[in-house]
Design a protein around this nucleic acid. Structure first.
Length: 888
DNA sequence: TAATTCACG
DNA sequence: ACGTACGTGAATTAC
């Protein structure tokens, strides 16, 4: 017989919150209620040894009870923020503890519990319901006990029907009648005024039910009779409201509630994350989930898996079952996939695991396997296939047909926790028994590859985890309506990115070295001058030594401090420039030193000897907003704002003679997106007429005509527009414009008066985020904001600004990604030689043969503008030249 | 490995 | 009262 524990999550967390003294973790989040809740859970598990557990939560503010009675739960005190911020923490912890949690929009936790307990007792199981709410007593039966919290939260008093009879003289169902008569102030259930527990019990002992009481009021007298007769409707309504609904359409089975003990590998990290050290000790769990073993010898993975190790002789065993292969994992070595070693590949079907050492993959006998890898119609599922594609490419093994990338799916499901490796993902999905990479390989300097037997089994373990994970992720993608985003945008994009990266962009090495020589000479002069003025030689790159010179030796005023000492950043130096000639020189030095080390030397190091190009690596799972990031080298931050730096762009050239670099960038994409999602009439009109948006903003904020907008007004308006996109704060704007906070606040207020739709958007999106715990882009990309209800001002404000910014930045990212997918298709469809090379957030860069210049000048901006239909037009400007500098 | 600085959108 | 603008990556110093 099974033993189920069903917990009323909302009720218990409330109790715990008020019962426990305040407690915060090092990040400033309150954790006392979660702590109390956890203590109670551990106690329950120890005392009752349940086979199944489930925590139910209320979902949404409006429930079916509001249909008949809109004032239900009206007038209730707002949940204190110190408590609301703990809900996401609790839910995350429950996942780590392996305890199921249910919620269903429109129903309360007690309805879910009522429904599950009904099913459970019908199936002959034992049930313990845990709550702080006496209403639950109505669910008691010979199979269902009700545990009510006493005083604190860890003490629980269990009731069965006999004990309820002893205590109240009522059957469980009569508890509903009692509440019908008494009402409940906290839920705003009226009941009959003047009837409390005592009178209610007396009436029920006499008549048995609310209906009988009302039918027999003639047997009563005095004030009591009047009140009951006057409020008979209230009593009926109250009884209805107090009745737990036991037919909730829950699409859940008991299997989903199975609890087979706390697993150290998931519970440990979850408890450690909350900084519950005492609980970790009590359970003697390790914060890392018990994966540390203290010595260097690799552990044998927990799962015993049989792996067929493939060699030239037995490769047919794999070749004949390729159509059954469901997942693959490639073991690569090295951070930069363009230079990564490939150690071997593991393939798994539902029946068997295979490991192919890389040397074997290169043999003639492996041709069928290589053909399968290269075949676009043969679907590949795995983790970070983009990296696999690149690594194989540089070893001359083509790869195609990526159909499901677990890393990418994880990124969409939670972009802030995406760079989880397979092990972390596996524990997230409750799949145990995977040895961690650290154990198998050792970490840091001790990193070394284990022998084939250990490695192949480890990879097979990963494959086994992937096999189980993929359907779970697919289900979650379905639930979040992210199928299109995943299958039609991000998956195709990952192949396009790989193509761009393999193509690379040519760099004129000689010119770059010449530029480096020029910088070197200028830097030398500047350094000498600085030493001369300072009267001593020191390390100009050291903020510490520089601070010493500026603020101690030269006695300049300290403008700003950092954690470790004086700040010497550009903003500070600008302020100091009037005081001393040395400061200008230092600023110039900084500019040139940056260009030299990052862009000349850095770029030179990245030029491939093989291709004479740089091949960046776009990362698709880093930025929380949905943007790409670029590494080895980063080609998304090549200088442009200052002329000295902009010259760097001259060395980026077409890779073929008589070709051109063509660049197209979206004009004001983020503000256009804002106009669309805020539906602000003024902003929309500005873009429909393609006005200069900063001038238009200045006109509306300052209340002047276009011709009266001076440069300063436009500059301020531009800063306000930036601020709006970033999630505005008066403080941030005041810093940016170097004005007082009051003046900045005034600007913002004027802006919101002029663009009321934008104000409404900002208010609504923050409200939505507080309600849902996440925000989304137009294409349903999602970002969770667990700190949106934090009581810590800084944490909460940051989350609020993120809530405002992410749908804007993220939708812009969606749009250019769409444009890239469409552009890739267009180049193929039109059979063009032109190649897409780079993406820089709102800009696409191509290399184009002269013969295709005319068509590309039209096709690129057109494709970009049509990527997604908004309520305002999108605009893209195009230009071209002999190098990236000229394409401006 | 963390902190600081600075390049980009 | 609180004290930050949103999102990245790379180079460098200092611990």
């Amino acid at each position: 017989m099974n033993k189920l524990i069903l917990i009323d999550g909302n009720s218990i967390i409330y109790r715990a919150f008020f019962a426990m003294p305040p407690l915060t973790n090092t990040k400033g989040l309150h954790t006392n209620a979660v702590y109390g809740f956890t203590n109670m859970l551990l106690r329950l598990i120890e005392d009752h040894k349940p086979t199944h557990m489930m925590v139910a939560f209320d979902a949404g503010k409006i429930t079916f009870r509001h249909e008949g009675y809109q004032e239900y739960k009206g007038g209730r005190e707002k949940t204190p923020p110190e408590l609301s911020e703990q809900f996401p923490l609790l839910k995350e912890l429950l996942r780590g503890l392996g305890i199921a949690q249910f919620e269903l929009s429109g129903y309360e936790a007690d309805d879910i519990i009522g429904t599950v307990s009904k099913l459970a007792e019908e199936a002959d199981n034992q049930v313990l319901i845990v709550s702080g709410d006496k209403d639950m007593l109505q669910l008691a039966s010979d199979r269902v006990q009700i545990g009510l919290t006493r005083k604190g939260v860890t003490e629980i008093e269990a009731y069965n029907p006999e004990q309820i009879m002893e205590r109240y003289g009522l059957t469980p169902l009569q508890i509903i009648d009692l509440k019908g008569l008494m009402g409940d102030a906290s839920d705003n259930i009226p009941g009959i005024p003047g009837v409390g527990e005592k009178t209610g019990l007396k009436l029920l002992h006499q008549f048995g039910s609310v209906e009988e009481v009302l039918a027999n009021t003639h047997e009563l007298k005095g004030k009591m009779k009047e009140k009951i007769e006057a409020h008979s409707d209230d009593a009926i309504l109250s009884k209805k409201l107090a009745t737990i609904f036991r037919e909730v359409p829950l699409d859940k089975s008991f299997d989903e509630m199975v609890f087979d003990g706390l697993k150290e590998e998931t519970a440990g990290p979850a408890l450690a994350h909350l900084e519950f050290k005492s609980l970790l000790e009590r359970l003697s769990f390790d914060a890392k989930g018990g994966v540390e073993n203290g010595d260097d010898t690799p552990d044998v993975p927990a799962r015993e898996l049989e792996v067929k190790i493939i060699d030239e002789g037995n490769i047919n065993e794999l070749a004949t079952v390729l159509d059954k292969i469901e997942v693959m994992t490639a073991e690569t070595y090295g951070d930069n996939p363009h230079h990564a070693e490939v150690v071997g590949l593991a393939f798994s079907s539902q029946e068997a695991h295979y490991f192919v050492p890389f040397d074997v993959l290169k043999t003639e006998a492996a041709e069928p396997l290589r053909a399968w890898l290269a075949e676009p119609t043969a679907p590949k599922r795995g983790y970070d296939l983009h990296r696999v594609d690149l690594a194989l490419h540089w070893h001359d093994i083509p790869f195609a047909g990526a159909a499901f990338d677990v890393q990418l799916a994880a990124y969409l499901l939670d972009p802030t926790e995406a760079n989880q490796n397979i092990n972390e993902l596996a524990s997230k999905y409750g799949l145990a028994g995977l040895a961690s990479d650290e154990i198998v390989y050792g970490k840091g300097a001790k990193y070394k590859l284990p022998d084939t037997a250990v490695l192949s089994e480890h990879l097979a373990g990963k494959n086994a985890a992937l096999l189980e994970m993929i359907p779970m992720q697919q289900q979650e993608l379905d639930k979040n309506e992210m199928n299109e985003l995943f299958h039609d945008l991000e998956m195709p994009l990952s192949r396009i990115l790989a193509d761009m990266e393999k193509q690379g962009i040519a760099v004129n090495k000689d010119d770059l070295m010449k530029l480096g020589k020029e910088f070197e000479a200028q830097i030398k002069t500047l350094v000498d001058e600085v030493y001369e003025i300072a009267g001593t030689e020191f390390n100009l790159n050291s903020p510490k030594q520089l601070g010493e010179i500026l603020f101690v030796k030269l006695g300049l005023p300290v403008v700003k401090k950092t954690k470790t000492g004086y700040s010497t950043d550009a903003e500070v130096l600008e302020k100091l420039a009037p005081y001393h000639d040395i400061v200008r020189l230092i600023l110039q030095y900084r500019t040139l030193a940056k260009l030299q080390s990052t862009y000349v030397e850095g770029l030179l190091k990245e030029i491939s000897p093989k291709t004479g190009k740089v091949h960046t690596y776009y990362r698709q799972t880093i930025a929380a907003t949905g943007r790409l990031s670029s590494q080895y080298p980063n080609l998304q931050n090549i200088p442009i704002r200052l002329e000295e730096g902009r010259k760097i762009r001259k060395v980026f050239v077409p890779s073929e003679p008589d070709w051109y670099i063509l660049a197209a960038d979206y004009s004001q994409i983020e503000l256009r997106v804002l106009a669309h999602i805020s539906d602000d009439p003024g902003l929309k009109e500005a873009f429909v007429h393609d006005m200069d948006i900063h001038t238009k903003t200045a006109m509306d904020v300052f209340g002047v005509q276009a011709e009266d907008v001076d440069a300063n007004m436009r500059r301020s308006a531009k800063a306000v527009n930036f601020g709006i996109v970033y999630g505005i704060s008066d403080y941030g704007l005041s810093q940016n414009l170097n004005i007082t906070r009051k003046e900045a606040a005034k600007f913002i207020d004027n802006y919101f008066d002029a663009f009321i739709g934008v104000r409404r958007y900002m208010d609504d999106i923050v409200k939505d985020a507080k309600r849902d715990g996440y925000v989304t882009t137009l294409l349903e990309r999602r970002r969770y904001l667990p700190e949106i209800n934090a009581s810590n001002f800084n944490l909460r404000s940051f989350a609020e600004r993120t809530a405002m910014n992410t749908p804007i930045q993220g939708t812009a990212a969606d749009i250019i990604k769409l444009a890239m997918v469409h552009m890739d298709a267009a180049l193929a469809r039109e059979k063009l030689q032109s190649r897409m090379l780079l993406q820089v957030h709102d800009e696409l860069i191509f290399e184009v043969p002269e013969s295709e210049l005319e068509i590309m000048k039209k096709l690129v901006p057109e494709t970009m503008e049509k990527a997604l239909k908004l309520s305002v037009p999108l605009k893209a400007d195009v230009s071209y030249g002999l190098n990236w500098y000229e394409a401006k």
